[in-house]
Each structure stands twice: as structure tokens, then as C-alpha cells.
């Protein structure tokens, strides 16, 4: 097999933004093995797409696009049977949380795990401090659609937390 060309500048950029791949894999895949596979596939897709990176957007934004696209399409079909929605036990959190706030955030994580792939991507970008315009740039949704969706997602998440707490 031919030796793949990997230049230092590219690897440096990847290393500086490696957190993105980890965050995406953590958001979309439930166990360590799947996450590791996901990160490897993301690296491969990044390497494959890098020559088309024209520098018009930030490298981190571009990396988010590639990693999210990989999570949404390539790996979803490969791991169809394994990729169940996140369950409580996947987080391996203590059954008795220290306080209410922690419990609520734990429930929020569970509720996020049940969102659709696209809404999960929007939440991830939002959590990472992306503005609506940047989320729109990554996903391809209009800015107003991102805003409307985030309002709905918030409502949905709050409702799910409330339901869980009332049980």
C-alpha cells in the first residue's frame, strides 16, 4: 500500500483541535470502542478532505463540519445495531447524585442523548460557544432556523428533565 502523505502543519492543526473529535465522539457514541473507532474514522476523513480546505473559515469550524458529518453518516450506518440511544448506565455516574443541580445536569445529558442527530449537533456547537451564524455555517441550516430549533430543543430538554424529576 502507498505511504499516505501527512504533513506536519496538518498534524499540528489536528493536535491543536483534537478536542473537537473527542467531543463529537462523546456526543454520538456510547461506548469506548465505538468512540475510538469514530475518532479514527474522523481522522481519516479529515486527512482525505484537507486538500480542499481553503482557509476561508477557521480550521476548527471546518474540523467540526468533517467530524459531525462523519458521525452523522459514515459511522451511523456501520454501527447501526450498536448505536442505541444513550441510557442512564452509559454515563456510569453515581446513582445518588451529590445535589439537585448535578442530578438535573445528569438528566440533561441523558435528554441530549435522545435528541435527533442533527439537533444533537446543534446542541454540541451551541455548548462549545458557537454563535447562531456559525452553527448555520457548519450545518447548512438558516440562522433563523437554528434559532427556532434551539428554542424548541431547550423546551424539549426542560420538559424531559421535569418529567424525570417528577417520577
Amino acid at each position: 500500500m502507498m505511504e499516505p502523505s501527512t504533513d506536519k502543519a496538518f498534524i499540528n492543526l489536528i493536535n491543536q483541535n483534537l478536542g473537537i473529535a473527542y467531543k463529537v465522539s462523546q456526543f454520538y457514541f456510547d461506548d469506548a470502542e465505538n468512540r475510538q473507532d469514530a475518532i479514527q474514522e474522523m481522522m481519516y476523513q479529515l486527512w482525505k478532505s484537507y486538500p480542499s480546505f481553503d482557509g476561508r473559515s477557521k480550521f476548527s469550524t471546518w474540523m467540526y463540519k468533517v467530524c459531525l458529518n462523519t458521525a452523522l453518516t459514515y459511522l451511523k450506518s456501520n454501527k447501526r445495531n450498536k448505536n442505541e440511544p444513550l441510557q442512564e448506565n452509559h454515563y456510569h455516574l453515581p446513582s445518588e447524585p451529590e445535589n439537585n443541580k448535578e442530578e438535573e445536569l445528569r438528566l440533561l445529558e441523558l435528554a441530549i442523548g435522545q435528541l435527533s442527530s442533527l439537533n444533537k449537533a446543534i446542541v454540541l456547537l451551541y455548548l462549545d460557544g458557537f454563535e447562531y451564524s456559525e452553527i448555520s455555517e457548519v450545518t447548512g441550516l438558516s440562522k433563523s432556523n437554528v434559532s427556532v430549533r434551539l428554542v424548541r430543543i431547550r423546551r424539549e430538554l426542560e420538559l424531559k428533565i421535569k418529567q424525570k424529576l417528577n417520577r
Binding site: M1, E3, P4, T6, K8, I11, I14, N15, L18, G19, Y22, K23, Q26, Q40, E41, M43, Y44, W47
Partner: peptide, 21 residues
Amino acid sequence: HAEFTPFQENEFSTLIKKQMK
């Protein structure tokens, strides 16, 4: 999410070869 082991050049190259395969 800040604790990641950065990729070395040869390690990355091996990973790409593995994925290509």
C-alpha cells in the same frame, strides 16, 4: 476535554493506512 495525547507524524500515518485498508 483538554486531556488528549497528540498524534505523532508516524502514528498518524499508521492510522491513515489502517483506515484506508
